[in-house]
């Protein structure tokens, strides 16, 4: 029997520039290089971190897809390698973007490499661009914006998720405002401990 040092592996992926590295920095206190205009992550960055129950968690920051015409070919083997080892795939999108063609293409091409037992989570970042100053979900307007954004994303992505369509979780958050970061951390760390969710919120509670 092979003993694994890591309890599980979480892979963060998404289009280039959606804020994968800044999300990871905010979630786990990493100091991955981020830049608004320059491609920073050129190879997968693998980190090992201690989770709440003192087991270890492997976190992988993938290079962004769709940077240019050749990046798909360039990163293909990285994605194949890490998706087949992922227990959770966190697919990051940003709230202020409505173009999902490349996200669809990614799911079409790569979801087959994900283990059947693995989880898929779609994280929608930069929500402060739609709800300026959001620190918690309060006003009906904010709830309506979050709901309609998730509905729009579902409409575009669900047809490409195959049998994962019922198990996929959508998680809105904002690194800039620190909104809903805690619950994202819990979700990827698979924490067994009871958690206080009054301040944070999961997508299924929104929907």
């Amino acid at each position: 029997m092979r003993l694994s040092f890591h309890r599980h592996t979480v892979v963060f992926a998404g289009k280039r520039g959606v804020g994968k590295s800044s999300t990871l920095n905010s979630l786990f206190g990493f100091s991955l290089a981020t830049d608004a205009a320059v491609e920073c992550t050129l190879t997968p960055a693998v980190r090992s971190i201690a989770s709440a129950d003192s087991s270890r968690l492997r976190v992988v920051d993938m290079p962004g897809i769709a940077a240019n015409l050749t990046s798909a070919r360039r990163f293909h083997s990285f994605y194949r390698h890490w998706l087949s080892r992922a227990d959770i795939l966190v697919w990051i999108t940003q709230a202020d973007v409505r173009a999902y063609k490349k996200d669809q293409q990614f799911f079409l091409d790569y979801l087959q490499f994900l283990k059947p037992s693995s989880q898929l989570m779609v994280a929608i970042g930069k929500f402060d661009t739609l709800c300026p100053g959001i620190t918690e979900l309060q006003t009906p307007e904010q709830i309506a914006i979050v709901k309609s954004k998730i509905a729009d994303l579902r409409q575009q992505l669900d047809p490409y998720l195959g049998r994962r369509v019922d198990s996929v979780r959508y998680h809105p958050y904002s690194v800039f405002m620190g909104w809903n970061i805690g619950s994202l951390r819990e979700a990827v760390a698979l924490s067994e401990q009871p958690t206080n969710r009054t301040a944070d919120l999961h997508s299924h509670e929104v929907l």
Partner: peptide, 15 residues
């Protein structure tokens, strides 16, 4: 958009 990082769609369109 200059503040974005994904140009593959744009490049495909330009081609």
């Amino acid at each position: 958009q200059a503040d974005r990082g994904d140009f593959a769609d744009d490049q495909e369109m330009i081609l």
